[in-house]
């Protein structure tokens, strides 16, 4: 039996009155991979993730997430963590986890306890009182504690202090990741993130400038992903 890819995009275009956010994107993301979605600000990374998450509808083209059109069914199996101010400021960390649990029964409460300890967050803290870095960690907790088949993280490192970044990234793909979970991480901090990617997609002005297995690209070009980022996207 052929396994269904986590994400398939066919000629996806997202047009706005004055701009084109995505200009014909073709992509296949295999199940179980850790994928880096790399590009400068405004290259279309967020739009792409939001289309996969079902928050935006493409102007034209086909989108398949876990074999289905984005909708309620895919939202049950996808965790999307946006870049900024994700959650309700007036909730406490535990309120939020309870709230998420009521919509996603797959949220593992034991794991949230473990993650809170790892990320150094207190359950009774008000979300509005958390620092930017703590909010970024909270997003990761919410994403990682679910058995979601597909985890979409938009700039998860923004706001996290550089010394913690590597630690969190490696925990993210290592002990914290659920078995077989597909992870798509958008970032422009390639240096720190690159050893964790199986597959990389370089996005430039709404188009895929280059994509492939990170290892194959290294073998072919003799460049690191960071160097390729500079070369492809300049």
């Amino acid at each position: 039996m052929m396994t269904i890819p986590a994400v398939m995009l066919e000629n996806v275009v997202k047009r706005y009155p004055l701009t084109r956010a995505l200009d014909g994107v073709n992509l296949t993301i295999e199940r179980g991979k850790v994928v880096g979605l790399l590009g400068h600000n405004g290259s279309g990374k967020t739009t792409l993730l939001k289309i996969i998450a079902g928050l935006r509808t493409p102007t034209s083209g086909q989108v398949r997430v876990l074999g289905m059109a984005p909708g309620l069914e895919t939202k049950k199996r996808v965790a999307f963590l946006p870049e900024v101010n994700t959650f309700y400021n007036w909730m406490t960390v535990d309120d939020l986890l309870k709230f998420v649990k009521s919509f996603h029964p797959d949220l593992d409460l034991e794991k949230t306890a473990e993650l809170k300890a790892f990320m150094n967050l207190k359950g009774e803290s008000k979300i509005g009182a958390l620092s930017k870095g703590q909010q970024a960690r909270l997003k990761l907790i919410v994403g990682l504690a679910r058995q979601a088949d597909l985890l979409l993280l938009d700039e998860p490192l923004a706001g996290i202090d550089p010394p913690s970044r590597a630690k969190i990234l490696h925990a993210l793909v290592g002990e914290l990741r659920q078995e077989g979970q597909t992870v798509v991480i958008s970032t422009h901090e390639v240096k720190e993130a690159e050893p964790i990617f199986d597959h990389v997609i370089f996005l430039r002005q709404g188009r895929v400038a280059l994509e492939g297995e990170a290892e194959a690209l290294r073998a072919e070009t003799g460049h690191s992903m960071e160097e390729l980022f500079g070369e492809v996207l300049e």
Binding site: G32, K33, V34, H170, V173, G174, P195, F197, D198, E215
Partner: peptide, 10 residues
């Protein structure tokens, strides 16, 4: 993977 700080798939 933890020691080399790379992806377990690798």
């Amino acid at each position: 993977a933890a020691a080399a700080r790379v992806n377990p798939n690798t």
